[in-house]
Design a protein around this nucleic acid. Structure first.
Lengths: 142, 142
DNA sequence: CCTTACTTGTTTAAATTTGAACAAACTACT
DNA sequence: AGTAGTTTGTTCAAATTTAAACAAGTAAGG
C-alpha cells in the first residue's frame, strides 16, 4: 500500500500547487484551464459539452457551470449543433486563445517544478507508463 | 507531457471510483475515511486537528467540517488538549473503529481493482518510487 | 511584566461539485 | 407514423471546499 499512499499524497500536493498558481496568476480554476487547452487542440476549436465532461473526467453539470463562467469571461462561446438540436458546442474565442497563450508558460513551469523536474528521466518514463496503463484501463470505453 | 496527462486522468478516474465506493457502501466521504484510518494508526487513536490537516493535505477548515460530521455520526469525539488550551484532539471512538473495520475490506478491494491489480509488480514498484519521490519533495517540511 | 509575533481551531461567505430530476430531442424497431 | 428507450444539456438543492477574518492562547525577548 506504499504506492497507494504515495499516489494520494502526490495527487493532493501537486493538484494544490497547480490550482493555486492558476488562480493567483491567471484567475482561472484548473478545470477552466483544462477546458481552454482541450478546445485549443480540437478541430475548429470546439467540443460538445458531453465530450468535454468525458475528457476532463467530471460531471456534465460541472461542465455546464465552468463553461458558463468562461462564457461570462468571454473566453468561450456556445454554439448550437446543426443536426442535433439538443447538442451544444463550446467554442474557444480569440480572447480565450489569447488567455490560454498567456497562461500556458506559468502553468508549464509549475507542472515542471511540481512533478517533471523532481524525477529522473527513467522515473518519469516509468511514471507515464504506469499511470498511462491505469488511465487506459479505467476508461469506460472498453 | 504524456506523464502529466496520464497523471491527471488517472487521479481523476481512480479518485472517482474510490469516492463512489465509499459513499455508496459506507456513507463515508473519502476524507472521512482517511481521517478514520489515520486515527486508528495513531498512538491513543488521537491526532491534533492541525496535524490531521497536514496529513490529509487539506485545509484546517476542511478538517473542522469533516470531523464535525464524524462527531455527529459518533465515530469520532473531540478532546481538548491539556497543556495547550487552544489545542483539540480528534479521538476515534469504538464505534468509529468498528465502522473502519467494516469499511476497510471494500475500500482495499476498490483500490486493488482501480490501481494495484492493473499493473505488473515492476510497474507498481516504479510508480511507488516515482510518486514517493514527488510526495517527499513537495512536503513543506524541508 | 509586556508587547509583539505566531499558532490554533472555528466561523463565515463565496465558489465549486455532485447527483437527481427534468424537458427536449434523437434512435430503433415495429 | 408510433412508441419505448436513450441521450443531451440544464436546473436545482445539498454537500463540500477554500480563503480570510477572527478570538483565544502561547512563545520570545526585552
Amino acid at each position: 500500500m506504499a504506492a497507494w499512499n504515495a499516489f494520494l499524497e502526490a495527487s493532493h500536493r501537486v493538484g494544490r500547487r497547480v490550482e493555486r498558481q492558476l488562480r493567483d496568476q491567471q484567475g482561472l480554476s484548473h478545470p477552466q484551464y483544462e477546458i481552454l487547452v482541450r478546445l485549443a487542440e480540437a478541430p475548429d476549436r470546439e467540443i460538445r459539452m458531453t465530450e468535454l465532461a468525458e475528457l476532463l473526467v467530471t460531471s456534465k453539470s460541472g461542465i455546464t457551470y465552468q463553461v458558463g463562467k468562461l462564457e461570462s469571461a468571454g473566453l468561450v462561446r456556445r454554439r448550437s449543433c446543426s443536426g442535433d438540436e439538443r447538442g451544444v458546442f463550446a467554442v474557444l474565442t480569440d480572447e480565450g486563445m489569447d488567455k490560454l497563450r498567456s497562461a500556458a508558460p506559468g502553468h508549464v513551469e509549475i507542472v515542471r517544478s511540481s512533478l517533471i523536474d523532481l524525477l529522473t528521466p527513467d522515473q518519469l518514463d516509468a511514471l507515464g507508463d504506469a499511470l498511462g496503463t491505469v488511465a487506459r484501463r479505467l476508461d469506460p470505453r472498453d
